[in-house]
Design a protein around this nucleic acid. Structure first.
Lengths: 349, 349
DNA sequence: TTGAAAGCGTTACCAG
DNA sequence: CTGGTAACGCTTTCAA
C-alpha cells in the first residue's frame, strides 16, 4: 500500500510527474519514466481507487440494475450480466450489482451519491418503473432492452422485428406457404418487452408476403416440459412446413427431440429457424439456422453509449437497434410442394 | 449534488456537526439535528461516495469473484450471487462483480487499489487458484465453499457431510437396507468441491449402519436429459427402496416424472430425500423431504465474517459449517420388508 | 454540545 | 519536460 509520494521520492521526481507518467496525460522523458516505473515496481505501488475517484471526479464504476423477475430465464439473464462485466472491463470499468429490491432504490442511491458514473438497465419490462426514474436522474442511464415508452431514453437491443421479418422472408422465398412460430412462455408476452414485438413483426411480414401463420407459446410456465411438444404437434398437424423458434434453450432441445421421435427430418420435412436465441446454437443436438441475440454485442454497445454520455452533452437519446445476422446451419430448405397427405388448410390460430 | 458545506451553511452549523448528525457518531442536540435534517431535505443532500471512501478509509464495497466455469449450474449460481448482494446491502455494502477472466486478476486489482474492503469467493474449485492468492492478499477474503486446501482461510458452507449422514440415518431408521444416491453430473465430481464430500459421507455412514449403497451420477453432462432416467432405472432394478437426491432442479423433475410414469408411489414404493438442494423444493410436482443448501444462509454468514475481518485483528480463519435442517414433506416411509419380487442382491456399484 | 482544521491520496491547473 | 499546490468532499481529532 505504498502511496504516490513515496514513489515520487524513490524516483526523485515530483508527485505530479508520477501521476502524469502513470496516466500518460502528459509527455514524460524516457529517463524519468524509467525511474518512475522502477520505483513503482519496487514499491508495488498501485493508485488508491478512492482518492482517484475523488480527485478525478469519476468512479470508473457502472451500476447494473437487474430486478430479475420470477419469470426471467436465468441462464439468458446471466449471459447478459457477464457480458456487461466483460464489456465494462475493456474500458477499465467495474460493475456494481443492484438486484431485486435494490434494483430501483439502488439506482437513486448510486446516482445521488455519485457512486456510479452511469447506470445500465437489464431485465427491462414494457412498463418498467425505472423508465421514469431514469428520466429524473442526472446520471446517464442506458437500457438494454426497449420499454414501451422510451421517449428520451438511450436504449440498445437487437432489432427483433427485423430478425423476425428476415426469418419469414427466408422461408417465403423458399416457397413455404404455412409457417408456425413457437414463442416463449405465456407470461413472457405480458411481462417482457420483446416477445410481442417479435410475434407482431412475424405475423405482419407474413401477411405482406401472403404466407399463412400459426403461433403457439412454449406453454404457461418455464417448468412445463410438455407445452412445447403439444405446441409443435398442433402446428405440424395444421400442415406447417416451417417453424420459427423464439424460445429458450430448453425449448429448442425439446422441439428437436420431439421432431426426432416423430421421424421428422430437417430440413427435408420441416424447415427450422431460431430467432433471438442468446445461447450457443451449435450446442444443440442439431444446430439450426438462427438470427441470434448476442449478449456481448448489446452490452458492448450499451457500454459504449454509457461512456459517450459521460462526456457531458454528448448524450444521444434514441433506440440503438442492432441489425440481425443470419447464421446458416442448413436447417431450411425449399418446400417441395403439396404432398398426398397434406391436410386441409385450417383457420389460422 | 449539494455538498456538505452547503448543508452546514443552510443549517447555520459547522461541517463537522452535519457529518456527526448524519453518521450519529457523536450526540447532537435535537434542535440542531432538526435544522440539519431540514437543510438536508431542502437541498436533497446525499454524501458523496468517493469523498466518504477516501476520508473514511472504507469503500463499503465487497468484491465478488465468480469465474463461472462452464459446468457450473447457472440458476444455482445466480441464487448465490443475489444472496450475497442482499446480505451485503443489509450492512450497507455493495457488490462489485469480478467474473470470468477477471475473477483472479480482479482480486489483485481491487485489493491493491483498495477498491473493495473485502472479497467474497464463489464457485470454489477443489484446487482453486484463488486460494493461494487469498493468502497473499491483505484484503480479507471469505470463501463460500470449501477448497481442498483451506489452511488459514475463512470458509463458509453447508455441512454437506452432516446432511448426507442425516439422510442416511433417517432411511436406516425406517428400515431401508438398500439405498441409492443420484448425484450430480460426472464433471461435478472432479471440478467442484462438495459433491465428492456428499458422496463419501453418504457411503461412509451407510457402511457404519450396515446399509447397502448404490450410486449414479446424473449423466455426463447437464444437457443430457436421459442420464437421470437411466440412473434411476438401474437403481430401481437393483432393488433400492430409497433414493437420496443430490442433483439440480431439472434432475429432480426428471426423476419425479420417471417415477410417475412407472407408477412408483412415494413414499409407499420408494422413499425420497433431497440433499443440498438450493432451489425451492415446493415448486416440484411432488415436494420431497430435503436437507437444503440455503444460499441466503451461507451468504449472510459470509458477509458477517467479512465484516468481522474488517475490524483488524478479528480474523478467524477456519471452516464455518452450517448445520443442516431437515424439511419434511412426507416423502419417506418405512420399508415394508421383502416382497415377493425382490431381486437378488447384486454387488454394490 | 459544537467548531476549526488537519488529513485522506490523487488529479490537474498554473508556472517555469 | 517538470514542479508546486490547490482542489476533490468528506471524516475525525483536537480544542473549546
Amino acid at each position: 500500500m505504498a502511496k504516490i509520494n513515496e514513489v515520487a521520492e524513490a524516483a526523485g521526481v515530483s508527485i505530479s510527474t508520477v501521476s502524469y507518467a502513470l496516466s500518460g496525460k502528459r509527455p514524460v522523458s524516457p529517463a524519468t519514466r524509467k525511474r518512475i516505473e522502477d520505483a513503482v515496481a519496487k514499491l508495488g505501488y498501485s493508485p488508491n481507487a478512492s482518492a482517484r475517484m475523488l480527485a478525478g471526479r469519476r468512479t470508473n464504476i457502472f451500476a447494473l440494475t437487474e430486478p430479475l423477475r420470477t419469470d426471467t430465464h436465468v441462464p439468458t439473464h446471466m449471459a447478459f450480466v457477464l457480458a456487461t462485466a466483460v464489456a465494462a472491463r475493456r474500458h477499465d470499468y467495474d460493475i456494481l450489482l443492484l438486484t431485486e429490491e435494490q434494483a430501483v432504490s439502488g439506482m437513486k442511491r448510486v446516482a445521488s451519491s455519485g457512486l456510479a458514473d452511469a447506470i445500465l438497465v437489464l431485465d427491462v419490462a414494457p412498463d418498467d418503473e425505472r423508465v421514469a426514474l431514469a428520466r429524473s436522474l442526472a446520471t446517464p442511464t442506458v437500457f438494454i432492452g426497449v420499454p414501451d415508452d422510451h421517449e428520451g431514453l438511450v436504449c440498445v437491443d437487437l432489432d427483433f422485428e427485423a430478425a423476425a421479418r428476415l426469418a419469414v422472408e427466408k422461408l417465403a422465398t423458399l416457397g413455404h406457404q404455412r409457417i408456425g412460430m413457437l414463442g416463449m412462455t405465456e407470461s413472457a408476452y405480458e411481462k417482457s418487452n420483446f416477445p410481442p414485438r417479435v410475434r407482431a413483426a412475424y405475423e405482419h411480414r407474413a401477411a405482406e408476403l401472403g404466407v399463412q401463420t400459426f403461433f403457439r407459446t412454449s406453454g404457461p410456465a418455464q417448468t412445463d416440459r410438455n407445452g412445447c411438444r403439444v405446441a409443435v404437434s398442433e402446428m405440424l398437424a395444421a400442415g406447417v412446413t416451417a417453424l420459427v423458434l423464439h424460445a429458450n434453450e430448453d425449448a429448442h432441445a425439446i422441439v428437436l427431440s420431439e421432431l426426432d421421435q416423430r421421424g421428422v427430418s430437417i430440413p427435408y420435412d420441416l424447415s427450422l429457424i431460431s430467432v433471438g436465441n442468446s445461447f450457443d446454437i451449435d450446442t444443440l443436438a442439431r444446430p439450426i439456422d438462427s438470427l441470434p441475440l448476442i449478449p456481448a454485442e448489446s452490452c458492448n454497445r450499451a457500454v459504449e453509449l454509457a461512456l459517450e454520455s459521460l462526456d457531458e452533452g454528448h448524450r444521444q437519446p434514441g433506440l440503438h437497434l442492432i441489425a440481425p445476422t443470419y447464421l446458416s446451419r442448413d436447417s431450411i430448405g425449399p418446400w417441395v410442394g403439396s404432398t398426398s397427405d397434406e391436410p386441409e388448410a385450417p383457420a389460422a390460430m
